[in-house]
């Protein structure tokens, strides 16, 4: 028997978890969940569970970080030992140090900290459960927490990844797709202006594939951005 596969069928192809190629995982964001933090957010996307907390602007107790013309941000990304299937050794490692740095750099362009010179804003991102795409989830949650803390900002940064799995460009990779796929492109943007604040690539993509992944990730970011705004509105209009 011979099967003829047409283009039509290919584009309707489903992924392992039943999603379409350009579909994000189910997403839920809640703002203001921690009582003692100045701002906080809880985010669930697929199997990821992330808590972000923001403290500040507060007096900088690390003198050398102080800037006389503007405020500074510090970020800590941390994975709980129980967040992955094999227990993760607690404490910072090479990967989480990198993610802490890129998260701070992805968020910084959106913040208007000039009004708070000589101060410091601390961001803590805790991964409670991980299932692929935690750095984007962390950025998205941190941005909601920053807005919740009342820190002036130009736009709410939002992160989303695209990648290549089985030769197809897909949106919002799950852990399995990330491991088995050929490429992963995490992206963070400021949705109003479309400015890119984070762009990484892992794996191999042709130029066309990269362009496609980039535009797909931007679309994903815009969808997530709406959920972010909704989360803040729900906090006060309940």
């Amino acid at each position: 028997m011979i099967f003829i596969i047409t283009n039509d069928i290919v584009s309707n192809k489903e992924r392992d978890d039943g999603r379409k190629l350009e579909e994000i995982r189910p997403l839920k964001i809640e703002a203001g969940i921690l009582k003692r933090a100045d701002g906080s957010a809880y985010l669930e996307v697929g199997g990821n569970k992330v808590i972000a907390a923001v403290y500040g602007p507060r007096e900088s107790y690390i003198r050398r970080l102080l800037r006389p013309d503007t405020g500074v941000i510090r970020c800590r990304y941390n994975m709980a030992p129980f967040s992955v299937d094999d227990r993760k050794r607690p404490g910072p490692d090479r990967r989480s140090t990198e993610i802490s740095k890129i998260t701070a750099e992805a968020l910084r362009p959106s913040l208007l900290l000039e009004r708070f010179p000589r101060s410091m804003v601390d961001i803590f991102i805790e991964i409670i459960e991980a299932e692929g795409g935690t750095r984007c989830a962390g950025i998205t949650a941190a941005s909601v927490a920053l807005a919740d803390a009342g820190i002036p900002m130009k736009d709410m940064v939002v992160g989303c990844a695209a990648g290549k799995v089985d030769g197809e460009i897909v949106l919002d990779l799950s852990e399995k797709e990330d491991k088995e796929g050929q490429a992963d492109v995490p992206l963070a943007i400021m949705p109003r202006t479309g400015e890119i604040t984070l762009l990484q690539t892992d794996g191999n993509l042709t130029e066309d594939e990269f362009d496609k992944a980039l535009s797909l990730a931007i679309e994903g970011c815009k969808q997530i951005s709406e959920v972010q705004k909704e989360a803040l509105k729900n906090r006060y209009e309940a």
Binding site: K154, D155, R192, E237
Partner: peptide, 8 residues
Amino acid sequence: KFVVPGEI
């Protein structure tokens, strides 16, 4: 009206 950062 309630607004969020970045809203026009």
